[in-house]
């Protein structure tokens, strides 16, 4: 059952959210994206749109974990034992983890149908399906605690281990975690927030022309999804080519010592814990430079990614009136003198 998908290129405004998604598409190692904010800002629409935008990837034919033909080190047991296989093109998986999903479907379990007949066959779960792609959890703040623990575990190790009925399966599960939610409906556990490389806050647009444009496009899409997709096909294709080009360009993007120093000083000024913030800051700046076709990461890139990399890593002072993103902006202003 295919649902028509709203084109990514047609999303009005929400530049931060779109930028974060594109950065994650260019560098999947960025560590996931957390999208928090108002109702009705198109969080889910954007994630679904991303799925349709991503350029396809090469996978081992018949592999249930979409192993990458180019990196045998990360192959699953099946691909390893086969030694080699045919590479085929497949879409990048963007897997929904729906609320109410049970553990057996997330990590995988024995195939029920065959088990009833007395055979032990592993049926991969959502984590397997998301390997090398994206795992999307809407309302991530409402996910049950034991499932959160499980996800954190797998996200950290990049591997899913299943022990059941004497069957012991481990398979690669590297995915970009995308979480969305509304903070009014429940706060997110700090451990989970830390796992996200980027976090963006989305707000309902308040200016009338933007609002009119959102409704106008949504209405056109609702009434004629195919026609609407056709209208935006060229813009979509262009964006897709941009991602492909950025991925090619990414390894060659250079970062000067001056930029490294600025990133370090920004993190110090904000008192973020550990090195992760700094590393992600550089990584995101490089990905953004690659998206723009630039050969080197510059101040401008750093400035654009700093709020989404750092605002969720600040130590929280519950009574500090300043929103985290404002604190980041302030620190940047002091540093860059902008």
């Amino acid at each position: 059952m295919t649902r028509p998908v709203y084109p990514f290129a047609a999303i009005v405004g929400q530049e931060d959210m779109k930028r974060a998604m594109l950065i994650a598409a260019v560098d999947q190692g960025i560590g996931g994206v957390l999208v928090f904010g108002d109702r009705g800002t198109g969080k889910s629409t954007t994630v679904r749109a991303l799925a349709a935008l991503l350029p396809p990837m090469k996978v081992m034919q018949g592999c249930r974990y979409q192993c990458d033909p180019a990196s045998p080190d990360a192959w699953c047991a099946d691909c390893r034992s086969a030694g080699k296989g045919k590479a085929v093109t497949a879409p990048v998986p963007v897997v929904d983890l729906p609320l109410g999903a049970t553990e057996d479907r997330i990590v995988g379990a024995l195939d029920l149908e065959r088990a009833l007949a007395g055979a032990k066959v592993f049926e991969p779960g959502l984590l397997a399906r998301a390997n090398r792609g994206f795992l999307y959890i809407d309302e991530v703040n409402l996910l049950e605690d034991h499932l959160v623990d499980l996800l954190l575990d797998v996200a950290a190790s990049g591997e899913n281990v299943v022990e059941r009925e004497g069957l012991s399966i481990r398979h690669p599960a590297r995915f970009v975690l995308i979480g969305s939610g509304n903070p009014e409906e429940g706060e997110l556990r700090p451990q989970l927030i830390d796992r996200f490389g980027l976090s963006v806050e989305v707000r309902t647009p308040t200016d009338l022309p933007t609002r009119i444009e959102v409704i106008r496009r949504r209405d056109m899409f609702d009434r004629d999804p195919d026609g609407f997709a056709e209208t935006w096909r060229r813009a979509q294709d262009k964006l897709r080519r941009q991602i492909t080009a950025a991925r090619t360009q990414l390894p060659a993007v250079t970062v000067s010592d001056a930029i490294l120093e600025r990133a370090a000083r920004l993190c110090m000024a904000l008192g973020t814990d550990g090195l992760r913030g700094e590393l992600t800051l550089i990584r995101a700046a490089r990905a953004l430079a690659a998206l723009g076709g630039d050969a080197a990461a510059a101040d401008a890139h750093l400035q654009q990614v700093a709020p989404m990399v750092l605002s969720h890593r600040l130590r929280r002072n519950p009574l500090d009136e300043a929103v985290a993103s404002t604190r980041v902006a302030r620190a940047m202003e002091e540093l860059f003198g902008a």
């Binding site: 649902r3 609320l99 109410g100 057996d104 479907r105 029920l112 809407d138």
Partner: peptide
Amino acid sequence: AVRLRAALDDGVILLQRDGL
């Protein structure tokens, strides 16, 4: 509320339960 909301938004139920 979020389960109802998801169904309203998508028009489908994504069922990932009990091996189904």
